[in-house]
């Protein structure tokens, strides 16, 4: 090897080795562990049981199946809300982008994205307190509705989790779609105006086609986040009431670290992993495509 080759290798190899050791090895080890019946507290006594963990999880364990179902219900509902609200907000901010004040309003609106998810959960735990929270007070005073235990009943709890999740991430969709709207050539708007197109035509024929790749990117990135949804659940409902808000990541955590069943837990982890890999493959392709489009424009 010549000197240049060694130099080039030094740039790239350390990162690859690091990722292999801390990021790839654990996932492979998870697959290995998932074939055993094992307790975290008694690691030296584990029994090989093959597929059994998967069989139990996928065909017998109602909690796990509910967790998968909840994860996707929460993901699809949140993302739908985020797309619709995010698009409306992006349109509004796009129309007023020339006003000086719009920058400040936009910056304040996007603050939730970067907030610690744990804290977001706590903020809503405080607000949604059934008897003494501000939300109950407002609902009762202004709308005359009886307060309920928003996080303490199955369906309200699920809706609350979806709302909290979308509250944090709608601003992300907003700035992403706003970036998309900025790429629409202004001639297209003018041409539409001359042709007398109404807002609906402008939206469906010009705007949505040109921001479609941004939307897809947003959906995929959010899907990946929703699959690992954990922090908000951990601090607000802990999967409850019952198993109404049980999600995959929380189920895995509970199985591995509350019941110490690392065999079953690893199997659950591997299932999450497989779902993530499928979504990821789509994501990587999309990221490359969006990037290429952006480079050419």
């Amino acid at each position: 090897m010549n000197r240049e080759k060694i130099e080039k290798t030094l740039f790239i190899l350390p990162t690859c080795l690091f990722l292999l050791a801390i990021s790839i090895f654990p996932f492979i080890y998870s697959v290995y562990l998932s074939a055993f019946q094992a307790k975290l507290t008694k690691m030296h006594r584990k029994f090989f049981i093959g597929w059994e963990n998967y069989q139990i999880l996928l065909f017998e364990d109602d909690v796990f199946l509910t967790a998968i179902q909840n994860t996707f219900t929460i993901a699809f509902s949140s993302i739908t809300i985020e797309i619709i609200l995010g698009f409306i907000m992006a349109k509004i901010f796009f129309e007023i982008r020339h006003l000086k004040i719009s920058n400040a309003i936009r910056t304040i609106s996007i603050l939730p994205i970067m907030l610690t998810p744990l804290c977001v959960g706590l903020v809503f735990l405080y607000i949604l307190n059934p008897t003494l929270g501000i939300f109950s007070y407002i609902v009762e005073t202004f709308f005359g509705l009886e307060p309920i235990a928003y996080l303490g009943q199955p369906i309200p709890a699920k809706i609350s989790i979806i709302c909290i999740n979308s509250w944090q991430w709608t601003p992300f969709m907003m700035i992403l779609l706003l970036a998309g709207l900025m790429t629409v050539p202004s001639e297209q708007y003018e041409a539409a105006k001359i042709d007398g197109a109404n807002w609906y035509h402008v939206m469906t024929k010009i705007e949505i086609p040109s921001i479609l790749s941004f939307m897809l990117l947003g959906i995929v990135l959010r899907l990946i986040e929703c699959i690992r949804l954990f922090d908000i659940i951990y601090v607000t409902t802990r999967g409850g009431p019952g198993i109404a808000t049980e999600v995959m990541a929380y189920f895995t955590y509970r199985t591995e670290f509350r019941s110490f069943q690392i065999g079953t837990g690893s199997a659950s982890a591997v299932i999450i992993l497989i779902i993530s890999i499928i979504v990821t493959t789509i994501a990587v392709t999309l990221l490359r495509r969006v990037e290429r489009n952006a480079d050419f424009s």
Partner: peptide, 20 residues
């Protein structure tokens, strides 16, 4: 490959890293 490791859920790596 580097990008795809970003998408892997941390919860799936937790126990092996714990053992390590």
């Amino acid at each position: 490959w580097i990008l795809s490791t970003r998408m892997l859920p941390p919860v799936a790596a937790a126990v092996p890293l714990f053992i390590l």
